[in-house]
Design a binder for these strands. Structure first.
Lengths: 220, 220
DNA sequence: ACAAGGTGTGAACGAATATTCACGAGAGTA
DNA sequence: TACTCTCGTGAATATTCGTTCACACCTTGT
């Protein structure tokens, strides 16, 4: 029989975990500090989760679900590639302002290694990589995208820019770095506009000034 | 008086530190394991470095010095913007293959926070941000670079792509992610060529298809 | 060959942390 | 109200890790 189940308390615990894991990393955030900040005892964490790693994965999944629903909502509407990009950029800016801890947690898992890293990458990046691949395939068909570039690498570069943008809004190091480059935190609208111009060029420009050969070894 | 000073042993200790810090992070890599793998005792670490963080910073500086000399050599020769980019990409590919631990360590400090993050960013990113700013200013003067983009943000996007490229060559998570996008690890030459095309577009394309206004709120 | 003192060693110590478990509090039932 | 069963509690435990220090070794000067 149920006695003192906490319905949204469980949510609060997860959010607290996300916040502390995001800020301190998997090792530096202690179960005790998470429990204290969430207003529960350490014991209850072990009633719901087998161990620290299990709890961490639960936080990660909880965090990812919000990102997934964001992407799902974004792609529910048909649109041109450049408009998709604009809405993506804005959505990421909004999400970063609202849930910086989620992005920071995302960045944390980025430093995992070994087989864990591969599994996490497949679970997390699978969604967006499939999404972008689809977008780019559509873009090619409708002529909104040039045809002289490898779709995979193109999607890769595209996501690299978006990924770094998120980190630059949420992680202290990247934030400081962005300010270094721009001389202070730029306006959201300026970033949106400039990144779109950057992307637009890559989308449509096609004349190949870049010679193919130059088979390494000697440059120039 | 000196007795059993280790001349290149100190270098080996630093390299070992770089490797373990890069792989496990600041917290998970223990002083004992570093000492063991370097073939010295724990005590000697504390003879040369005040504490763990001091040792970590020494590893970081040692690692950065090799990256700095790489950049310095690259920029010693005058060249056109696109050629600079090509040489940069190749140099980063070579460096990543030769010293993946250094890149991984670089990625680790990326998850620092607070005032530490700001200081590290200024110390580390200062060099490349100044370099890229100078390159872009030159590019503007010689007409190799379009004039309708903010130089700071442009340099920022540019470095974002290079940074992610390094991580994708060295860090397990990013490596798996790159393979997801490309369906296997692409050839260095393919990455070089495609990234150059991507960049070339951004460098020279100027027609503004992107409307300026659309003052947020409503998209479309 | 011997003395002296600088230098590496690694066992020992204290602090911190993941994990457990005996206990008590509160809800449901009669 | 009294009994019971469930679930949260937090002190206790075992382990790990950063850091120290008494000691032994080796080099140098004589």
């Amino acid at each position: 029989m149920l006695k003192k189940l906490s319905t949204e308390k469980l949510e609060e615990i997860l959010e607290t975990g996300i916040e502390l894991f995001a800020h301190n990393g998997l090792h530096a955030a202690s179960m005790a500090s998470i429990a204290r900040q969430a207003g529960v005892s350490v014991g209850v964490l072990y009633k719901y989760y087998a161990n620290k790693e299990d709890f961490f994965m639960a936080c990660l999944r909880h965090s990812l679900s919000s990102l997934e629903s964001l992407l799902q909502e974004l792609t529910s509407r048909e649109d041109k590639l450049l408009n998709y990009s604009r809405r993506l950029i804005r959505a990421l800016q909004d999400f970063s302002a609202l849930h910086p801890s989620h992005i920071r947690l995302y960045h944390q898992i980025t430093s995992s290694s070994g087989e864990t890293a591969r599994q996490l990458a497949e679970e997390i990046e699978g969604l967006s990589s499939r999404l972008y691949t689809r977008l780019i395939a559509q873009g090619r068909e409708t002529g909104a995208l040039r045809r002289d570039m490898d779709p995979g690498l193109f999607a890769f570069f595209f996501d690299n820019l978006l990924m770094m943008l998120q980190f630059s809004y949420c992680c202290d190091y990247y934030k400081a770095r962005m300010e270094l480059y721009c001389g202070g935190m730029p306006e959201d609208s300026a970033v949106e506009e400039q990144l779109l111009r950057f992307l637009e060029s890559a989308f449509t420009f096609e004349r190949s000034l870049v010679p193919h050969g130059d088979p390494r070894g000697e440059n120039d």
